[in-house]
Amino acid sequence: MCLAVPGKILARQDMLATIEVGGVTRNVSVMLLPEAQVGDFVLMHAGFAVQVIDEEEAKKTLALFKELEQYAEHDK
């Protein structure tokens, strides 16, 4: 039930944001995330944006996973 999906905020009016997810747009409430801004990637759950995705941290995780490839190869 705690499934949540990431999307990008395209527009915002008061507590309502238009968010793009995989090419589809939908409206979600930003009442639980008032600091969200246009251009932010956010995590959505049950009609609400609940967290801003930290792009720097996402890049770090991705870089780490990609780096492991070298170690996996060395191990062979």
């Binding site: 990431p6 995705i53 996402a58 996973f65 990609k66 492991l68 490839e69 996996a72």
Partner: peptide, 19 residues
């Protein structure tokens, strides 16, 4: 957010499971 090829995912998974 984490865009990786299948091959990259496989290799990272292999590393983790081995460790």
């Amino acid at each position: 957010m984490l865009s990786m090829t299948n091959e990259e995912v496989k290799k990272a998974a292999a590393f983790f499971t081995k460790e």
